[in-house]
Structures are given as structure tokens and as C-alpha cells.
């Protein structure tokens, strides 16, 4: 089976010489399709750097990185944009919705850049919003939505292009406990539906929802635990349904 994510010996150095900071010191990580991986670590452990590299927002200083079979490092600017558009869905800690654009327009954005026709775009965006339970909020602007609702819009935006990988950076970091449960519930259901998800977090309760937990420390993977099989259901969802 081809890997969704294949990182080999990735290193990342910020700055140079005396002041050089080694954010990643040789990380190798393989993720199979359908897996739900939580990457954990304290701040400064290099998890955000790893996330940026996986999300094609940054390039590693050394090492190889394949996303869904594509060597991203070898791509030019334009193709990287296409990869970000088609293969990755981002969910950020701070939601990162575009202000003064309705929820629907925000969700439509990746489709617009992907060149989908307006009618099809609207249909798919509405379906994605339906999926996260916000069908009644499509015409609200971000500042008219609660934090949990904004994050659900962001998830809908990440999903709308059916990406190979859903990448979430501290998705519950800015949310209250109820909204956190909402969001994690959505991730569980997505995972159960076969989506590949990588969540970056420092909270243990969030990591408990994943099928696999990878722990980073000082730019190295120090622990890699599997909580549930790749082709099974996510652990917490199984508890709920059981």
C-alpha cells in the first residue's frame, strides 16, 4: 500500500553558525492511508516545524519528503500551490478564516483556486458545511460565529477538496471544552469514514482520540505508540459506539 506521508531523515535548521537552531534533527515518519496520527510534544520540541513541512508551507533543510507519492521538495512554486490545494486540508489553531467573507465563501475558497465551477463549488461547500453541522450558518461571517463554529468552518474548508491528508495544528487549542468535544467528534467520524488525519497537539486528551501517538522531543521522535489498528475505528469512537 502506498504511503500518504513519507518523511525520511528530515532536518530543519533555522539561522546559521553560532546561533543556528536545530528544530528537527532527523525525523522519519510514515503514515498509511486511513491512519489517525497525533503528534505530541512540548513547545520547542519541533512539532510545529514538522507540521509546516508536512503541510508544504516550509521545506526541510535536509532529508526527503513524499506526500501521496509526490516528492514535494522537487516541485516548483506553482506545483507546490497545487499540492497544497489538492492533497492537504489545513486546520489551524487560530482558525484562520478570512474576515468579511461568509462561511460559505471561506469554504469555497480552495475550490475557487482549484478551478471548480461556481455551481459545483457551492454544492460541495454546502455539503462540507452540512457535514460539520453548520448548514444553518452558511451566510454568517467569521466574526458572527463562536470559536467552535469558526473551527468547524475551517474543518469544512479543509475537507471540501477531499484531500489525501487532513492536517490539524492544535485544532482545539483555542476552544472551550464543549467545542473541543465537538471538533474531536468530527475528527473521529472522519477517521471512521477512512480519512487520513494528522493532528498536532500537546494535550493528552486530544491524543487519546488518535489511533497512533508519536511523541517528539528536541527534534527527534522519542515514542511511537499504536492505540488502534489502521483499518479499525478510532479508539474513543469505538468506546462511544460500544
Amino acid at each position: 500500500m502506498s504511503l500518504v506521508l513519507d518523511v525520511r531523515d528530515a532536518t530543519k535548521v533555522y539561522g546559521a553558525g553560532e546561533t543556528a537552531v536545530h528544530a528537527l534533527r532527523g525525523v522519519s515518519l510514515q503514515v498509511e492511508p486511513g491512519d489517525y496520527v497525533a503528534i505530541m510534544g512540548a513547545s520547542g520540541s519541533g512539532k510545529s516545524t514538522l507540521m509546516n513541512i508536512i503541510g508544504c508551507l516550509d521545506v526541510p533543510s535536509a532529508g526527503r519528503f513524499h506526500l501521496d507519492g509526490v516528492d514535494v521538495g522537487a516541485l516548483d512554486d506553482r506545483r507546490q500551490a497545487v499540492v497544497r490545494n489538492r492533497k492537504i486540508g489545513f486546520v489551524f489553531q487560530s482558525f484562520n478564516l478570512i474576515p468579511r467573507m461568509t462561511a460559505l465563501a471561506n469554504v469555497e475558497l480552495p475550490l475557487a483556486y482549484g478551478g471548480v465551477r461556481p455551481a459545483e463549488r457551492r454544492r460541495r461547500a454546502l455539503a462540507a458545511l452540512e457535514l460539520v453541522g453548520l448548514a444553518d450558518r452558511v451566510n454568517h461571517q467569521p466574526n458572527e460565529l463562536s470559536g467552535g463554529q469558526q473551527q468547524r468552518v475551517a474543518i469544512a474548508r479543509a475537507l471540501v477538496n477531499s484531500p489525501a491528508l487532513l492536517l490539524a495544528d492544535e485544532p482545539t487549542g483555542a476552544l472551550d471544552s464543549t467545542s473541543t468535544l465537538d471538533v474531536l467528534g468530527i475528527f473521529d467520524r472522519l477517521s471512521a469514514a477512512g480519512r487520513t488525519i494528522v493532528v498536532i497537539t500537546h494535550e493528552a486528551d486530544v491524543a487519546e482520540h488518535a489511533k497512533r501517538v508519536v511523541r517528539l522531543r528536541d527534534g527527534r521522535i522519542v515514542e511511537d505508540i499504536r492505540l488502534a489498528p489502521v483499518d479499525g475505528l478510532p479508539p474513543r469512537l469505538r468506546e462511544v459506539t460500544a
Binding site: 503541510g55 508551507l57 512554486d77 506553482r78 500551490a81 497545487v82 499540492v83 497544497r84 490545494n85 489538492r86 489545513f90 484562520n96 478564516l97 478570512i98 474576515p99 475558497l109 480552495p110 483556486y113 482549484g114 474548508r157 477538496n161
Partner: peptide, 16 residues
């Protein structure tokens, strides 16, 4: 700037 970052993250090419 942030909006530009978001647009790029969701796959806006430089030309757009």
C-alpha cells in the same frame, strides 16, 4: 498579510 497566508495555504498560486 495573514489573509494572503491563508489563501496560499489553501492553494492559491502566486499568479492569483
Amino acid at each position: 498579510t495573514r489573509e494572503i497566508g491563508i489563501r496560499k495555504a489553501v492553494g492559491a498560486p502566486r499568479g492569483a
